[in-house]
Design a protein around this nucleic acid. Structure first.
Length: 1102
RNA sequence: AGUCUCGUAGCUCAGCUGGUUAGAGCGCUACACUGAUAAUGUAGAGGCCGGCGGUUCAAGUCCGCCCGAGACUACCA
C-alpha cells in the first residue's frame, strides 16, 4: 500500500527521514557504495565552533550539500571530511571577554599556558549546536573524523608547508608599515581596526609646508599633511604624472616674503582667490582664508617635475643615501591638499612603497643593537636626535603638555619661513580598540610569503578554475591576483600556529623546522652543544614551543621568532593538513587533491579561496580546486544585512522547525542564484511550502488514493509508450527533457535553474495539466461497479504507470536540493512497488534521459492545446457561458498545414478540457479571415539598414489582398526611398487577426472563435452535468466514500426532464448511482440549477 | 578611494547572441470551478526596464558617465 496522510507536515517528514537515515546509515552507504576509483573530491571549509551557526550558514551548506549529493547520485564517491577552524583572534577575544582581562594581562595575571588552555576549551563551545544544525538541515558531512586545526598533526603539516616555502626562498623577514598601538605596544591587524568604534573623528593640526627647490631662489613645493610630526622624517615628495601643476607668485602670509609656490592646478582655488598684479604683502595676512596672488608664471605636468630636488625641510637626521627628490605616485589625487604628497617612508605604507621603488631611503637612526629605527620610538615619542622635540609624544597618549607637538612643529616651521598655511583639520582616524589611543602607522618586522614572486603562475592557474559566478573569479579574484602583495604571515598573539623559525641573537643564523622529527634532532643537537635537557613539547603551541632553544651551525643558541602565523594559513593548508600529509596518508592525499568542488561565501574570496590557491600554487604548482561556488549574503526581508545589533537575525533552528529544512533549502536555491544576495522573506518560504511542496504532496496523495483503490503496484508490464495516449507521451517527453536539463544544470553548478525547472514541471505541467486532465482516467466509475481489480484497463494502467514514473523521477531530481521530502516521496512510492532495490533515494542513480521519448513536436502540440484551451475559456468567460454547458464548435483559423496537423493530434484533449464538441478549421481559402502582417525584423533589419523604418510603415499599410498575394506568390517587391528589395515569405510574419462576425480571442500567434449557439440537446447535456455536480457535492458533504453506491430521487421539473431522460445513464455513471428516480415530491434538500431552477433531491447510500 | 555584484509590476524574480504589444509567480480585485480542496481556472488593475548621454535602421539587452544598495580591499597625504 502507498501511505496516505491527513495533511502535509514537512517538519515531521524531516524528523521521520532523519531517523531513518541515521538508523540505516544512509550517508555512509551513499559514500561506500561508490567506487574508490571514481571520486568527486570536496573540501569542507572549516567553520569556527566559537560562534553560533546562523541562517547564512544554512545557505552556504545547502550549496555544498546539494552538489555532493548530486555527484553521489551520478555514481561518484564523495567523501566529505568535516573540520573545525580553531585558531584566531575572535577566540582570543572571547576568552579575554569572559575572563575580563586584556592582552596586557597575559603573562602577568594569567600565564600563557592557562590562557591557551582557555582558548582550547572555548574553541568547541558551540560544537553541539553546530552538529545539531548540520543534522537538522540535512547537511551530510563526516563529523566523526574531522580535522582540527589546533592538533599537533595539523600544525606539523603546516610546518612542513612553511619549510617548503622557506626552501624555495619564498619566506622572508622584512619591514612593513603596519598599524601599531604605542599605548599597547603591539601591532594591530586590519580586523582590529575595523572593530566598531575604532575609527573616530579627531581634530589635528594640519600643515602646508614649503619645500625649497634646490638651486632656485624662494621657489617652493607645497605639500599638505595632517601629521606634522612625520615631517622630520620626510625624504621625498610625490606628484601625479598627469596632474597639471602651476607655479604661482604670491607673498607668504606669515613673513610677507615674495615667494613662488608649486601646487596642482585643480587645487588653486583651495588656497588662492584671484590674481592681482598690484598685490602688496599686507594684502595676504588674512588668517587661514585663501589669499590673492600676483600671477601664474608656469604650468607643467607632474611628469616634468619628476626628479627635481629640494632642500631637506627639518634636517635633524641625514639619510644614508641621496634623497629629497620629487617622485611620481599613482596614488596622488587632487581631492585634498595641494596635489603634492609629503613622503615619510617610515610612517606610511604608500610612502614606504613608492620610496623603495625609487631608491629613496627612509630616515632612520641606529638603536642600541645597531639596528635601524625610525625617528619615533615604540612608545610613540621622538628620539633624542630630533633635538627640539626629543622625548615628546607624537599623538595624544595621555601626556600632560602645553600644546601638542604638532603645533610646536608648525610654530617652528613658521619661524623658519617654511610654513605656507596651518589649519585645524577634522578627520576620521583609527584608534586602538583596547587602549582607545590613536594608532600609528609604524615600521614593524614581519615574516612574509613572497606571493608576488608567483603572481603570474597563480593568475594562470586561476584561469583554469571554473568560478560561479564567473565574475568573481575574473573580477574580484583575478584583479586581486594582479595586484597581489606579499603575504604578511606574522601575528603577535598567543593562540595559533607558531612560526617554526629559530634565530640567533645576531639575527645572522636561522633555521626553519619542517617536522617534529627534525625538531627532535635539532633539540638533541642543542642539548648536546649547550648542555641542556630539553625534549619536544607535547603541545606545539606557545608557551612550550617558546622554551625550546636550538643551536646554530656556529654554536650560537637560537630562539624562536615569537610570531604566530596568520590563521588563514591554517585553513589554506587544509588539503594537506587534514590528512597529516606527507607524514601519513600519502595515497589518500594524492587521491584527494585537488578538490573538484568547494563552496563558501564571497567574503572568502580573499580569505579561504585565496589561501588555498596560494599554497597550492606555491608548494605544488597546482590549483587547489577546480570548481568553486561563492554564495552571496543572506539579508533580511528589507535587504539589510543581518546583524545582532539590528536584531534582525533569523534563528536557523526556529526556521527549520517551523518550515522544515527542505522548504528552507528549496527557497534559498530557487529564489535567487546563490551568488546573488538573498533577501530572506518568510512570505517566500510560505509560498514555496504551499505552491511547490503542497502541490507535489497533493499530486502524490491523489495518486496514492486511487492507486490503493485499484491495487496498482506497478507489477504489470509497462504499456509501450506508443500505445499510451498522447498526453502520457507528452508528459513523459517533458519529463525526459526535464531530466536532461536538470542534469546539465546541476553539472554546471546552477542550482537555481535546476530548482526552478523542477518546480515549473511539477506545478504547471504535472499537476495543473496532466493530473487535472487525466483525473477521469484514474476514476472510471462505470468499470468499478462490479469490483475494483478487474477494472484495470490499458488506458488506466498507462495513466498510473505514467504518473508513477513522473513522481519517482521528480523525487530523484529534487533529491539533492530537498533531500528529506524527496526521500519521503521516493520511499512512499518505492516501498509500495518494490521496483528499485534502494532503501533511499540518495542511494539511487540520478535519472538518465531517453532521447527516444523526447518529442519536441508533441511538446509543441500540447503547448498549442494549452493555449487554445486558455483562449476558449476566456471566450466563455466573456460570453458568460459556464464550462459545464457543452458547445458545438471552436473555429480555428489555419495558416499552414503543419499547424492543423499538430492541433489534430491534441483535438480530443482540447475538446474535453473546454467542453466543446468539435473544432472547425477555417482555412485561408475561405476568404473570411482577416490577417495582420508585420515585417520580420531579424531577416530584414540587416539587409535594409536605414530603410527599415520606412519599410516597416509600408508593410504595415498592406491590405488584405496584398497579404494573400504575398502568401500565394511567396514573394514581394518592396520599394522604399528609391531602393527596391526582393522579399520572400520569410521576411514577413503573418497572423490571423479576426474572423469577422465572430467573437475571437488571440494570443501572439493563435486566434480562436467560439460558436455559442445552443440547441435542446446541448442544453440538456449541460443540465445533466450540473445535476452530476450537485450530486457529487452532496456525496462529499455527506462524507460518502468515493466507492459508495447511491440512490437518488429528483423532484420532477420541466427544466430537468430532458436532461434526465437523455442523459440518465451518464448521470448514474458519473455519480455511482444505482437507482435514479424522478418523482413528484422528494423529501430532501433543495438544489439550485441553471436558469434559477430549484428542485428537491434526496441522495442515500444504497 | 579601488574592485566586484545588484537595480525590470506593490513583493520575489525571468527576459537567449540587440529585432518592435516587456513576461511569470505571489499579493490585490472580480468572476468561475469543485471527489487533488490548506487546491484550481479566467479576467482586470499595476512598468519613464534607477538616471543621463552614446553606438545602431532598431537598446531592458551593447558602451560611457552618474545615482542608489551591498560586499571585499585600503594608512588617502
Amino acid at each position: 500500500m502507498y501511505r496516505e496522510y491527513k495533511g502535509l507536515n514537512l517538519p515531521q517528514i524531516d524528523q521521520e527521514i532523519l531517523e531513518f537515515w541515521e538508523a540505516n546509515q544512509i550517508f555512509d552507504k551513499s559514500v561506500e557504495q561508490r567506487s574508490e576509483n571514481n571520486r568527486f573530491v570536496f573540501y569542507e571549509g572549516p567553520p569556527s565552533a566559537n560562534g553560533k551557526p546562523g541562517i547564512h550558514h544554512v545557505m552556504a551548506r545547502t550549496v555544498k550539500d546539494l552538489f555532493c549529493r548530486y555527484q553521489s547520485m551520478k555514481g561518484k564517491r564523495v567523501e566529505r571530511k568535516g573540520g573545525w577552524d580553531t585558531h584566531g583572534l575572535p577566540i582570543e577575544l572571547n576568552v579575554e571577554k569572559e575572563l575580563g582581562i586584556t592582552k596586557e594581562d597575559i603573562g602577568k595575571t594569567i600565564s600563557v599556558e592557562e590562557y591557551n588552555e582557555r582558548c582550547r576549551e572555548t574553541v568547541m563551545r558551540y560544537k553541539d549546536m553546530w552538529d545539531d544544525i548540520t543534522r537538522k538541515m540535512g547537511y551530510w558531512v563526516d563529523l566523526q573524523n574531522p580535522y582540527i586545526t589546533f592538533e599537533n598533526s595539523y600544525i606539523e603539516t603546516i610546518w612542513w608547508l612553511l619549510r617548503q616555502l622557506y626552501d624555495k626562498g619564498l619566506l622572508y623577514k622584512g619591514y612593513t608599515i603596519q598599524p601599531y598601538s604605542p599605548a599597547a605596544g603591539t601591532g594591530l591587524s586590519s580586523h582590529e581596526l575595523n572593530l566598531p568604534g575604532a575609527y573616530r573623528d579627531i581634530t589635528d593640526t594640519s600643515a602646508v609646508a614649503q619645500f625649497k627647490l634646490k638651486g632656485a631662489v624662494d621657489e617652493y613645493f607645497l605639500a599638505w599633511t595632517t601629521t606634522p610630526w612625520t615631517l622630520p622624517s620626510n625624504t621625498a615628495l610625490a606628484v601625479g604624472k598627469d596632474i597639471t601643476y602651476l607655479k604661482v607668485r604670491t607673498y607668504n602670509r606669515y613673513t610677507g616674503k615674495l615667494i613662488s609656490v608649486i601646487l596642482a592646478k585643480d587645487r588653486l582655488q583651495a588656497y588662492f582667490t584671484e590674481p592681482n598684479p598690484e598685490l602688496k604683502p599686507e594684502d595676504v595676512k588674512a588668517g587661514n582664508k585663501p589669499i590673492p596672488y600676483l600671477d601664474i608664471v608656469e604650468e607643467v605636468k607632474g611628469a616634468a617635475l619628476e626628479g627635481m630636488e629640494y632642500e631637506q625641510l627639518m634636517p635633524y637626521v641625514q639619510p644614508d643615501k641621496p634623497a629629497f627628490r620629487v617622485l611620481l605616485g599613482d596614488f596622488v589625487s587632487t581631492e585634498d591638499g595641494t596635489g603634492i604628497v609629503h613622503i615619510a617612508p617610515t610612517f606610511g605604507a604608500d610612502d614606504f612603497k613608492v620610496a623603495r621603488e625609487n631608491g629613496i631611503p627612509p630616515l632612520t637612526i641606529q638603536d642600541s643593537l645597531g639596528n635601524p629605527m625610525p625617528l619615533v620610538d615604540k612608545q610613540g615619542r621622538f628620539v633624542k636626535e630630533v633635538t627640539d622635540f626629543a622625548g615628546r609624544y607624537v599623538k595624544d597618549y595621555g601626556q600632560e603638555e602645553e600644546r601638542p607637538v604638532d603645533v610646536d612643529i608648525v610654530i617652528k616651521l613658521k619661524e623658519e619661513d617654511k610654513l605656507f598655511l596651518s589649519e585645524k583639520y577634522v578627520h576620521s582616524y583609527p584608534h586602538c580598540w583596547r587602549t582607545d589611543k590613536p594608532v600609528l602607522y609604524y615600521p614593524l618586522d614581519s615574516w612574509f610569503i613572497r606571493a608576488m614572486a608567483v603572481k603570474e603562475r597563480m593568475f594562470e592557474l586561476n584561469q583554469t578554475i571554473n568560478w560561479k559566478p564567473r565574475s568573481t573569479g575574473e573580477g574580484r579574484f583575478g584583479k586581486w591576483l594582479e595586484n597581489l602583495q606579499d603575504w604578511n604571515l606574522s601575528r603577535s598573539r598567543y593562540w595559533g600556529t607558531p612560526l617554526p623559525i629559530w634565530r640567533s641573537e645576531s639575527q645572522q643564523e636561522e633555521i626553519c623546522i619542517g617536522s617534529e622529527e627534525e625538531l627532535r634532532r635539532e633539540i638533541e643537537k642543542a642539548n648536546e652543544a649547550l648542555g641542556l635537557n630539553q625534549s619536544v613539547p607535547k603541545d606545539l603551541h606557545r608557551p612550550y614551543i617558546d622554551d625550546v632553544v636550538l643551536v646554530s651551525a656556529s654554536g650560537q643558541p637560537m630562539k624562536r621568532e615569537t610570531d604566530l602565523i596568520d590563521v588563514w594559513f591554517d585553513s589554506g593548508a587544509m588539503p594537506y593538513a587534514q590528512w597529516h600529509y606527507p607524514f601519513e596518508n600519502e595515497k589518500v592525499f594524492e587521491n584527494n587533491f585537488p578538490a573538484d568542488f568547494i563552496a563558501e561565501g564571497v567574503d572568502q574570496t580573499r580569505g579561504w579561496f585565496y589561501t588555498l590557491h596560494a599554497i597550492a600554487a606555491m608548494v605544488f604548482d597546482s590549483v587547489a580546486f577546480k570548481n568553486v561556488v561563492s554564495n552571496g549574503l543572506v539579508l533580511d526581508a528589507e535587504g539589510n544585512k543581518m546583524s545582532k545589533s539590528k536584531g534582525n537575525v533569523l534563528d536557523p533552528f526556529e526556521t527549520i522547525e517551523n518550515y522544515s529544512a527542505d522548504v528552507t533549502r528549496w527557497y534559498m536555491m530557487s529564489n535567487a542564484n546563490p551568488w546573488d544576495n538573498l533577501k530572506f522573506d518568510l512570505k517566500g518560504m510560505e509560498e514555496v511550502q504551499r505552491k511547490f511542496f503542497g502541490t507535489l504532496y497533493n499530486t502524490y496523495s491523489f495518486f496514492a488514493l486511487y492507486a490503493n483503490i485499484d491495487q496498482f503496484f506497478n507489477k504489470a508490464p509497462q504499456v509501450p509508450l506508443s500505445e499510451r495516449p498522447e498526453i502520457d507521451r507528452w508528459v513523459i517527453s517533458l519529463l525526459n527533457s526535464l531530466v536532461k536539463e536538470v542534469d546539465a544544470d546541476y553539472a554546471d553548478y546552477e542550482p537555481t535553474q535546476a530548482a526552478r525547472k523542477v518546480q515549473n514541471f511539477v506545478n504547471d505541467n504535472l499537476s495543473n495539466w496532466y493530473v487535472r486532465l487525466c483525473r477521469r482516467r484514474f476514476w472510471k466509475p462505470s468499470e468499478q461497479q462490479n469490483g475494483s481489480k478487474a477494472a484495470m484497463d490499458k488506458d488506466k494502467l498507462a495513466a498510473y504507470q505514467t504518473l508513477y514514473e513522473c513522481l519517482i523521477t521528480v523525487s530523484k531530481l529534487m533529491a539533492p536540493t530537498a533531500p528529506f521530502f524527496a526521500d519521503w516521496l521516493y520511499r512512499n512510492l518505492n516501498n509500495a512497488t518494490g521496483m528499485e532495490n534502494h532503501e533511499s533515494v540518495h542511494l539511487a542513480d540520478f535519472p538518465t534521459a531517453s532521447d527516444a521519448v523526447i518529442d519536441k513536436a508533441l511538446e509543441q502540440r500540447m503547448d498549442y492545446a494549452q493555449r487554445i484551451s486558455s483562449l476558449v475559456l476566456s471566450l466563455r468567460k466573456k460570453e458568460k457561458i459556464r464550462v459545464r454547458q457543452p458547445l458545438h464548435k471552436i473555429l480555428l483559423p489555419i495558416l499552414d498545414n503543419h499547424f492543423q496537423e499538430q492541433v489534430e493530434g491534441v483535438k480530443e484533449l482540447v475538446l474535453s478540457e473546454v467542453n466543446v464538441k468539435d473544432i472547425e478549421y477555417v482555412t485561408d481559402t475561405s476568404g473570411i479571415l482577416k490577417k495582420r502582417i508585420k515585417p520580420n525584423f531579424k531577416t530584414l533589419g540587416r539587409r535594409l539598414g536605414k530603410d527599415m523604418k520606412d519599410a516597416s510603415a509600408a508593410i504595415a499599410a498592406l491590405g488584405q489582398e496584398d497579404i494573400s498575394r504575398i502568401e500565394k506568390t511567396k514573394q514581394f517587391l518592396l520599394e522604399v526611398n528609391g531602393n527596391s528589395y526582393e522579399l520572400t515569405l520569410e521576411d514577413f510574419e503573418i497572423t490571423a487577426e479576426d474572423i469577422p462576425g465572430w467573437q475571437v480571442a488571440s494570443d501572439e500567434s493563435i486566434t480562436v472563435a467560439l460558436d455559442i449557439t445552443l440547441d435542446a440537446a446541448l442544453e440538456a447535456e449541460g443540465m445533466a452535468r450540473d445535476i452530476v455536480n450537485r450530486i457529487q457535492n452532496i456525496r462529499k458533504d455527506k462524507d460518502f466514500e468515493v466507492t459508495d453506491k447511491i440512490r437518488v430521487a429528483l423532484q420532477r421539473d420541466d427544466a430537468i426532464v430532458p436532461a434526465v431522460e437523455r442523459y440518465g445513464d451518464y448521470i448514474k455513471a458519473e455519480t455511482l448511482t444505482a437507482d435514479l428516480q424522478m418523482v413528484e415530491t422528494v423529501d430532501g434538500e433543495e438544489i439550485e440549477l441553471p436558469g434559477e431552477v430549484k428542485v428537491r433531491i434526496s441522495v442515500e447510500k444504497q
